[in-house]
Design a protein around this nucleic acid. Structure first.
Length: 616
RNA sequence: GGCGCAGUAGUUCAGCCGGUUAGAAUGCCAGCCUGUCACGCUGGAGGUCGAGGGUUCGAGUCCCUUCUGCGUCGCCA
């Protein structure tokens, strides 16, 4: 007979009893009891049990006996109540009394068992990603990602945004990350670059009068990976005309609220507007431009206190600083600093734990970590050099209570001291279980520096990108004190993860050229690299700005995943290789010849030198 | 490029101070089994201890190199 699937496995319930249904899916598990068989069959909706009884035809029973795990089946039969329900299965009250059964496709024994929460080596999962994605928890994440993108699409549509695609093959531009390059066949020796983001295209769309653009856009950056960084990733990218920062924030907040409502329900929707904090405040209080505010443990400045002590550790650094040249003007100048963290109840920390913390500071070459336990008698790495009065002052300053630990980082450059303490703050909170994992803590970081000095290149570079507008109050410092100029830039942070960022752009051609010059471009270089933008700016530019949010990171946080690889269907590993396809891979010499390319070494390196174990 | 962790059966792991034929669970295969759902019972197959080199009478175990994956710093406007 012909089978036509009319029901998803996971949907069947007691009220379906009496219906004759046809399901199709994968054999999750088969139990052969001799006279009768039970087969659980799975599709993306869930599982249901097939019952092959002694009433079935000998052919059907013979077919059923042949079924193994992951065979693809079709089954028709009546939905009936089970003699004994299985409360662990959503469909556990019923089963399908099989009348007709067909093996659609046989399957080898898979390299790992297809089940939720399977504790399998990730390398193996990625090599057999098509099987890994068959697991219910992976399918749930795929579905959730789909629902999030749908929520974003409908929200932005309602807000008047047009979804416009921009090219993948574009032009490499200086600044920013390393590009992925694509050779041109027609212009040998010339190269396209895959977009790091659609930045310039979306600005040009504003010049074109599109007014509100968005795109769920793939972006490419050839830089090293992290758990929260993939070489190709997806951004929710948008741009608006005739707006200011508040408009961008409002749209973004509305969008994120919609996503949370869709995924977590009304109760989880954060209060609007999100809190805001300047970059300077975030750095000084939390040592990070993406602070996690789900816990306290703020950084306290104890530089003045330390200066007044006779502790050699402190005095040494201040003496060295007095010799050093005057630091460059900056929002956080690179002066000697002593900053503290109070670890509540940390006086019982082991020497081993403290050494590990000190090691973080030392390997980062940010300074020396000192510590004092608040207990009688005083204990710690510098207690011999601290008088009772000084310690009392320190306690007042830091608010440390009995049994607490005071950590102090002593360093020659305040920004480094803050950054490392920020890192220790996060690590301590994680280690000591201070983080409420159920919280969703959204936050805006504003007033970023426009420029940062690049020691290697010996020039100023854009902290965000070269199209970010300076704040008008700081404009006259662009040439004299560039480190003090703040940008009209903003980041949205969720639970200590940078979800996205954007800015109000420069729309004045003179100011844009001034910015390029500040970054060390000559007029000719600026024209060569960004001539099309400068050209466009001659024909009437609306004030505009926008933001880009990392979709992968958003889905990661919404699903409580610890890595982007859990929310991307076919992710890359740390070396940017695709283990399933064994990409990248060498190509035919003919292909290279057409492109006018010769390679330096005949011995090409690619991830497929080792037998992948599942060859054709 | 630096630092750290891991690699033993299809899978998840154990393997002591270097010493007999490298084990367990699960999966797989075969037989039996009429209400299972982690089915049960009996039996069986299954290993380049990631790779290469070294030390040793003897290496899964110690040393060196290397490959792979993960985390992290640099890097990521």
């Amino acid at each position: 007979m012909e089978f036509k699937r009319d029901t998803y496995c996971g949907e069947l319930r007691a009220e379906d009893c009496g219906r004759t249904v046809t399901v199709m899916g994968w054999c999750h598990h088969a139990r052969d009891l001799g006279g009768m068989l039970f087969i659980t069959v799975r599709d993306r909706s869930g599982e249901v049990q097939l019952f092959v009884s002694d009433q079935c035809t000998p052919e059907t029973r013979a077919t059923a006996a042949k079924i193994r795990g992951e065979f693809v089946l079709a089954a028709t039969g009546e939905v009936v109540m089970r003699q004994a329900a299985n409360p662990d299965m959503p469909t556990g009250e019923v089963e399908i009394a099989v009348r007709e059964l067909k093996i659609i496709s046989e399957a080898q024994t898979p390299p790992f068992y297809i089940e939720a929460d399977s504790a399998v080596n990730e390398e193996l999962r990625l090599r057999y990603r098509y099987l890994d994605l068959r697991r219910p928890d992976m399918q749930q994440r795929l579905r959730l990602r789909h629902r999030i993108t749908q929520a974003v699409n409908s929200y932005l549509d309602e807000q008047g945004f047009w979804n416009i695609e921009t090219p993948m093959l574009g032009k490499s531009t200086p600044e920013g990350a390393r590009d992925y390059l694509v050779p041109s066949r027609v212009f040998p020796g010339s190269w396209f670059a895959l977009p790091q983001s659609p930045q310039l295209y979306k600005q040009l769309l504003m010049v074109s009068g599109v007014d509100r653009y968005y795109q769920i856009a793939r972006c490419f950056r050839d830089e090293d990976l992290r758990a929260d960084r993939q070489p190709e990733f997806t951004q929710i990218d948008l741009e608006m005309s005739f707006i200011d920062e508040a408009d961008v924030r409002k749209i973004t907040e509305g969008m994120l609220a919609r996503v949370v409502r869709e995924v977590k329900g009304e109760a989880a929707v954060p209060a609007l507007p999100f809190p805001r904090m300047s970059w300077l405040e975030a750095m000084n209080r939390f040592g990070s431009d993406k602070p996690d505010l789900r816990f306290g443990m703020e950084i306290i400045d104890v530089t003045d206190w330390a200066r007044a002590t006779e502790c050699p550790l402190f005095q040494h650094i201040f003496a060295a600083a007095a010799e050093a040249p005057q630091p460059r003007p900056a929002l956080i100048p690179e002066t000697a600093a002593v900053k503290a963290l109070v670890v509540a109840g940390g006086a019982n920390m082991s020497r081993r734990e403290l050494d590990a913390l000190a090691n973080v500071a030392r390997t980062a070459q940010a300074g020396t970590l000192a510590w004092l336990m608040v207990e009688e008698p005083l204990r710690g790495s510098i207690h011999k050099h601290i008088t009772a009065e000084e310690f009392a002052e320190l306690r007042t300053l830091t608010g440390a209570a009995d049994g607490d630990l005071i950590l102090m980082l002593v360093g020659a450059k305040a920004p480094d001291v803050l950054t490392i303490l920020g890192r220790l703050r996060n690590q301590l909170a994680a280690d000591r279980g201070l983080i409420d994992e159920d919280k969703l803590n959204f936050l805006w970081i504003t007033d970023f520096p426009l420029l940062e000095y690049d020691e290697d290149e010996g020039r100023w570079s854009a902290a965000h990108h070269p199209f970010t507008s300076p704040q008008s109050a700081d404009l006259d410092r662009m040439e004299t004190e560039p480190g003090l100029v703040r940008a009209r830039a903003y980041d949205v942070v969720l639970n200590g993860v940078e979800l996205g960022g954007g800015s109000i752009r420069i729309h004045d051609p003179q100011l844009q050229m001034r910015m390029f010059k500040r970054l060390g471009f000559t007029e000719e270089q600026a024209k060569k690299n960004f001539g099309f933008l400068m050209g466009a700016f001659r024909y009437g530019v609306p004030p505009h700005g926008g933001i880009a949010l990392g979709l992968d990171r958003l889905v990661m946080l919404m699903t409580g995943s610890s890595s982007l690889r859990e929310v991307i269907a076919f992710p890359k590993v740390q070396t940017s290789a695709d283990l399933m396809q064994s990409a990248p891979a060498p190509v035919q010499p003919k292909q290279l010849a057409e492109l006018g390319i010769t390679t330096q070494s005949p011995e090409m390196k690619n991830p497929d030198r080792k037998e992948s174990g599942h060859g054709e």
